[in-house]
């Protein structure tokens, strides 16, 4: 986006931060653009087919999907969060709106969130100190919203050894601190 201003990451720096605590790596991921997508009333089928054609696999409750360009996670009934590379989709709403027209309500969410990607061999041992989401039973593709240290967060199991925690941007520092503290405690 052409402009003379410099952006900051959710943690308040020019570049995203990476922290390693024992076997856990915590990466502030700013490379993803987000938009919420909600079907308008009685247009669910239309939204599903447009999404499919666009390469957005819309998951069911408690699930997340990833594709070549787009990923998506279920937010609530007939509502999803669509993920796309920030570099190519910075103005993600301007890209999605023409596809869905009046069939869906689309809202930019990129800057509403901070996303931390955590990698470790034994993520369940870390997350049992953070939230009630049972990673031992929820493998890759599972996603949920839950509470971590009073913050409503999305927890997305990307792979056996990778989880994204997507939390409120204004509390990025508090969430980051909670993740680091838990990692120190668990390992």
């Amino acid at each position: 986006m052409a402009n003379s201003l410099k952006s900051l990451t959710p943690l308040g720096h020019a570049a995203a931060e990476t922290v390693t605590v024992g076997p856990v790596t915590i990466v502030e991921n700013v490379a993803v653009a987000l938009a919420s997508l909600a079907s308008r009333r009685d247009r669910e089928a239309e939204v599903a087919s447009i999404a499919a054609a666009a390469g957005i696999a819309l998951p069911g409750p408690g699930q997340a999907t990833s594709g070549a360009v787009y990923g998506a996670l279920w937010l609530g009934p007939e509502q999803w969060m669509v993920e796309a590379p920030f570099a190519s989709h910075e103005d993600i709403v301007a890209i999605l709106k023409p596809l869905f027209g009046e069939a869906a309500s689309i809202t930019e969410q990129t800057d509403a969130w901070v996303r931390f990607d955590l990698t470790a061999a034994d993520l369940p041992a870390l997350f049992e100190r953070l939230c009630g989401f049972d990673l031992r039973r929820n493998g890759p593709g599972a996603a949920t919203r839950t509470v971590i240290e009073h913050l409503g967060c999305y927890v997305v199991r990307r792979a056996e050894t990778e989880v994204s925690v997507i939390g409120p941007r204004s509390s990025a520092h508090s969430l980051h601190h909670a993740l680091i503290t838990a990692a120190k405690s668990a390992f």
Partner: peptide, 30 residues
């Protein structure tokens, strides 16, 4: 500032000529 998407509202809580201007949060500091 040369193309950054923003929103402008001409509303006032102070009673003055006033606006509220909104930019994507990552540009809030700038």
């Amino acid at each position: 500032c040369g193309g950054l998407r923003a929103r402008l509202f001409r509303i006032s809580f102070s009673g003055e000529l006033a606006y509220e201007i909104a930019v994507p949060t990552r540009y809030g500091d700038a």
